[in-house]
Amino acid sequence: MRRRVAIKRWDRPSRRSWAGEFAAIMAVALLVLTGCRSEMYEQPRYEPLEPSSLFEDGSSARPLVAGTVPRDDPRGAPPAGVPDEVFYTGWSQGKLVESVPFPVDRAVLERGQERFRIYCTPCHGELGDGRGMIVRRGFNPPPPYASEELRKQPIGHYFDVMTRGFGTMYSYASRVPPRDRWAIAAYIRVLQLSQHAEAANLPAEDRNKLPAVDEASAPRSQP
């Protein structure tokens, strides 16, 4: 219907209309503009941490509802037979756990060392002496792991501190998954031992490598 009307109008020779040219230009412009649309680049979905006007806080990522339980914790569930409380808090019936709730082998210690160097050394230092770079820049110095008091602490203490924070130290629960926290705790024990090892306890081959230490005077803590 419409087309017929248009043809009629164009047929009039007396009044030259630019409608045809205008339509052609618009068609080209439309083609050009469609080429510039970026629907595929910006698809109607959220990328991680993308802002959103939908929610009051402006964030598309929603905080977990209190009490949310992971359906399947990808960071590693407790090993069989270990209660959740022990694995996730380092406590057992009101007492700090005395041992790592899974077997500790070399791989676990190496993992612990790697994670310790990422998350702990900035303050605690490579040796755990509490003289990390951030401390040298003014952060409250943490006590050295090798101190008498800390060496007496059950291993659950370290897990608990990483999980809930301690003093000026923030919680690392959101950054370090539970299994890694246990691995770090185990590595802290390694650091403590490394600074209080007795030469007599070393295997013979390692003891021989010690630089000319008098066998009798070597163990510092022997009475």
């Binding site: 990422i118 998350y119 900035p122 951030i134 820049r137």
Partner: peptide, 8 residues
């Protein structure tokens, strides 16, 4: 400067 690991 501070030597913080990427993963921190």
């Amino acid at each position: 400067g501070l030597g913080i690991d990427c993963r921190y």
